[in-house]
Design a protein around this nucleic acid. Sequence first.
DNA 1: TCTCAAATATTGTTGAACAATCAGGCCTGA
DNA 2: TCAGGCCTGATTGTTCAACAATATTTGAGA
Lengths: 212, 212
Amino acid sequence: MTHRDALTDHLRQKIINGELLPGSRLSESALANQMDVSRNTLRETFRALTEQGLLGHVPYRGVSVKAPTEADVLDIYRCRRTVECSVMGQAHPQHPAVERMLRAVQEAESHVTDKNWLGMGSANMAFHEAIVALSDSPRLIRMFRNVSAELRLVFLMIEDPGALHEPFVKSNREILEALLSDGPEAGADALEQYLLESERWVLGAYGRRRID
Amino acid sequence: MTHRDALTDHLRQKIINGELLPGSRLSESALANQMDVSRNTLRETFRALTEQGLLGHVPYRGVSVKAPTEADVLDIYRCRRTVECSVMGQAHPQHPAVERMLRAVQEAESHVTDKNWLGMGSANMAFHEAIVALSDSPRLIRMFRNVSAELRLVFLMIEDPGALHEPFVKSNREILEALLSDGPEAGADALEQYLLESERWVLGAYGRRRID
DNA sequence: TCTCAAATATTGTTGAACAATCAGGCCTGA
DNA sequence: TCAGGCCTGATTGTTCAACAATATTTGAGA
């Protein structure tokens, strides 16, 4: 693993964790000094992260953390429905990723009592990543990874992320049950309902966002 | 538009057109001289194209044009079925992109008499890009763009690309007819049949490929 | 022929320099 | 007062040359 790849991962993580808030501009020289790399190396990572949709780039004005719009939220959920529901509808209930789904649900449930919103959100994400992993498709998984990262940016722009994850812990459990007891099509139906409802909540919260 | 963006597009086009064959290694200094840019600028474009899946990168061994494997072909078609069929199944038959689909079919048909395989392949691609455009989803369109470019690499590895496009010109016409006369679901069904059949042909031809 | 180490070539990374462009302040003229 | 234009400073775009880190090749010796 080269130095730059580590930097790319590191920067990506900082963005996803909210250490660099959506909309904030990333100065090349400042960040290069801070990260202790040269400008050229940093710029290479910028290209990769821009291609992943995490950074926006305007010529001669630099890059900034993308601040998804309402239209982006709609598009993100459209992608999620397209990919997740299709994968779920053709899933084998014996697929190893089902175990990952179960563990994610259990972890999310444990965080309900803790009121640990951050962990709950991560477990929620892990659940849906596991769903896409049912496909065994590297490209679908990578695409979902990018879309999912963009959705995290949306959460970062929202005031109260806790109330956004908690109601859906039970839904995820139900999706898993539907898949296991009634088959993939039932799972896909439950999943689509979840995604439509989640989209409504996120859009509502987006209207009350704190960051533009 | 900055110099580097133009270079990225240019290089991408050269790859898609087969001027740089799949598997061929791209020397930084040689290509930088040839393209008349600095190594650093070229490297930035490498990062972008790698993220798009057109180039493969191994640390300290450079980048090379990706030579998709049989597993890649399977994955590419899985993505195509997931995205294209889902979009088609929810399409509005009055969507402006339907006009693009029609024009693409007509152009492909005109190339049948010409035996212009290159133009036929491009028109075929344009037809399916138009299908995805039915979604009005920038992310789905971008993802399809990347997958579609990878598929072009597969075609470049294959001996006889002509025989691979010609039988499917009629199928595309039928898909369009199905959408217009019997609705989106019928269109999606026809499309899925097409994709499954096309996948079989491509896999077969891939077994007789000339490039590894 | 095989193995191992030195030589060679390529990529990874840096720092500095200059060119191109943008943002903001300042001045002028109406 | 305000619109327009110009200058200035700051940031990005791009190049170059150098060195470090790693891979590949060469070739000597057993």
